[in-house]
Amino acid sequence: MNLDTAAPPLWDYDLIADRLRGPGWAFLPNGLDTALALDLLQDLHQLPDDQWRQAGIGRRQDHHTNDLIRRDAICWLDGRSSAQQRYLATTDALRLELNRRLLLGLFDYECHYARYGSGAFYRKHLDAFRGRSNRVLTTVTYLNPDWQPDNGGELLIYDLDDTELARVQPSLGAMVIFLSEDFPHEVLAANRNRFSIAGWFRRNNSTADWVDPAR
């Protein structure tokens, strides 16, 4: 399936909501303002090395690293810079608007920078398993100026029957939003460094005896 190059800007909330109702995912080729995307890229490059860690798989007691599955490094966004604050304010506005239109009960948003060195990848996976996670919507935002098709590094999106739905080139400002439980996806290896922000809109599963999230 070819991507819809006429996809709406990120902040056309009605059209985003319509796409999440069906087919359940949206591709936004100009989802993030170019100036903000470049500011985030600069922020990412200014992070000290000790802020980055090898990405893992699984959550809580099942969390571990496996470089046969993924080889990226991550750093969580916490609003420490102006660029991060602006991005988080933008995603919070999206959260409120999608709650208003889709009644999703989205409680918060967590996200991290992802740094893929040349040759790094992330094998096919789901961000949430039905009934076992509070992740509702996944977002991926790309921070790569002048990305060329032969650079590789595409995001592949599948349905639950493993049919490929789309290949997304990780170009500066492009964004993808999809239902976390419904779309397996993978990151193909690139031949240059590749940067993005992976994020999740979540429901709150806290109880009197258990605080969610804990990371």
Rank of each mutant, 00 (worst) to 15 (best):
A73T: 15
L44K: 09
L36A: 11
H63F: 03
Q42T: 15
H45M: 11
D62S: 10
G56M: 02
I57F: 02
L41A: 13
D33N: 14
R53V: 11
D62W: 06
W52R: 03
R60H: 07
D72S: 15
Q46F: 10
G56Q: 02
I57N: 02
P48W: 12
D49K: 11
Q54C: 04
G56L: 04
D39Y: 10
Q54H: 03
Q51H: 10
T34Y: 04
L36P: 12
D33A: 14
P48F: 05
T34R: 14
R59W: 04
H45Q: 14
H45A: 13
T34F: 03
D39R: 15
I74M: 13
D50K: 12
G58Q: 01
D43V: 14
N66K: 01
G58N: 03
R59I: 04
W52K: 03
Q42G: 12
D50W: 09
C75A: 15
R59H: 10
A35H: 13
R71V: 00
C75P: 03
A37Y: 06
T34E: 12
R53I: 08
A73S: 13
N66Q: 03
Q46C: 14
R59M: 01
A55Q: 01
H64D: 01
N30T: 13
R71A: 03
T65F: 00
Q46Y: 09
H64A: 06
T65P: 00
Q61T: 13
D50S: 13
I69T: 05
